[in-house]
């Protein structure tokens, strides 16, 4: 197990280096630099002095070719320094990420929990009532939801709840008068703003997970031990909960591990649509402003999470299923 873990970690490090190298090369090849971005052109007060630009260029290796600059960046990262944001008053990238993380987590954690809490009963119900009319209807509806693009759903929801019913705000995270509100009103305000993004984020996962659970359950209920349990007179409820569902937990746990990076990166497009001030929005803004260090810091974080999620899924697999061993 230990040697397997060490080998996997070694591979993960090599993969990380390759990914960051590739992305660094790509973003440096994009026309424009953070010092010449449009924000600085439009607002002279945000423009850096030539000396400051030269100093930053020297400090972060931007005056060198990109492959050399990449090693400057990586050396800094190894020393736990993600660099500073060029377009946000030289604030450290790590601070920016920490500042934006709660907004993203508020969306993604809520919707992931909601998706799991709802999809497990739906998946089990669909197995128990397989091939009845209500089950076919629900399953077809979920399948259609699965094919509904999130940005289309977002627009439809906005049309319904903002334009037609005027119940929810169009986008943003807080109203303009947020600071003057009482605590309860603040919570309500946040809730109203979060409702549509959370709904959009949830339905995609919900449709996927419940189909996943149902497919796995259908495979399990055909196994011999289910037939044995049925022959011994176990009730249908106990068969589904105790005998079948427990055995679908293994793929479900794997799925949970793989959904870990989605906690941070899943909402990039949705945050952009709903102008939600989270990390996905930061990513988009940083790409537009050619803010290399921010892009690299976020890319590094997303990649580490993706690889960690895969590793975690494989580890959990061995924990929940004693037949699986790694050597």
């Amino acid at each position: 197990m230990t040697s397997y873990l060490i080998r996997r970690l070694g591979i993960a490090v090599v993969t990380l280096v390759l990914i960051t190298f590739l992305v660094y090369g790509l973003i440096r090849a994009m026309p424009g630099t953070p010092a010449t971005n449009q924000m600085a052109v439009m607002d002279p007060s945000k423009q850096l002095t030539p000396e400051a630009i030269a100093r930053i260029n020297r400090l972060y290796g931007l005056d060198k070719p990109w492959y050399t600059a990449y090693f400057v960046w990586m050396t800094n990262v190894v020393q736990a320094d993600l660099g500073v944001s060029f377009t946000r008053n030289m604030r450290p990238v790590a601070d920016l990420i920490v500042e934006r993380a709660p907004a993203t987590l508020m969306l993604s954690a809520t919707s992931l929990v909601l998706a799991y809490v709802l999809s497990i009963p739906i998946g089990l119900w669909a197995t128990a009532k397989a091939n009845t009319l209500p089950e076919r209807t629900v399953s077809t509806a979920l399948y259609m939801l699965y094919s509904l693009p999130a940005f289309v759903a977002a627009l439809y929801l906005q049309l319904l709840f903002y334009v037609k019913l005027d119940w929810l705000p169009l986008y943003g995270m807080r109203s303009d008068n947020y600071p003057s509100l009482s605590a309860a009103a603040r919570a309500l305000d946040l809730l109203k703003h979060a409702a549509m993004p959370v709904a959009c984020f949830t339905y995609v996962n919900l449709a996927y997970y419940s189909r996943f659970i149902r497919a796995n359950m259908q495979e399990v209920v055909r196994q011999d031990y289910i037939r044995t349990a049925r022959a011994k007179g176990v009730g249908p409820r106990a068969i589904i909960y105790k005998h079948a569902f427990r055995n679908t937990l293994i793929p479900l746990v794997t799925l949970m591990g793989l959904s870990l990076p989605g906690l941070f990166s899943g909402a990039v497009i949705l945050e952009q649509i709903f102008q939600w001030p989270g990390m996905g929005r930061l990513y988009f803004e940083a790409i537009g402003q050619r803010d290399y260090n921010v892009i690299m810091g976020l890319t590094l974080m997303f990649s580490v999470l993706t690889l960690a999620g895969q590793l975690l899924a494989d580890m959990l697999y061995a924990v929940v299923d004693p037949r699986v061993t790694y050597s």
Binding site: T15, I19, L22, V23, L26, A29, M30, I287, I295, S303
Partner: peptide
């Protein structure tokens, strides 16, 4: 397999936006 893994892990949004910007 390593190449496939790296391409899978590269955030496709960055790749697409970078290529579009070029």
């Amino acid at each position: 397999s390593r190449i496939i893994e790296v391409v899978m892990c590269v955030p496709s949004l960055v790749l697409i936006l970078a290529l579009v910007a070029l």
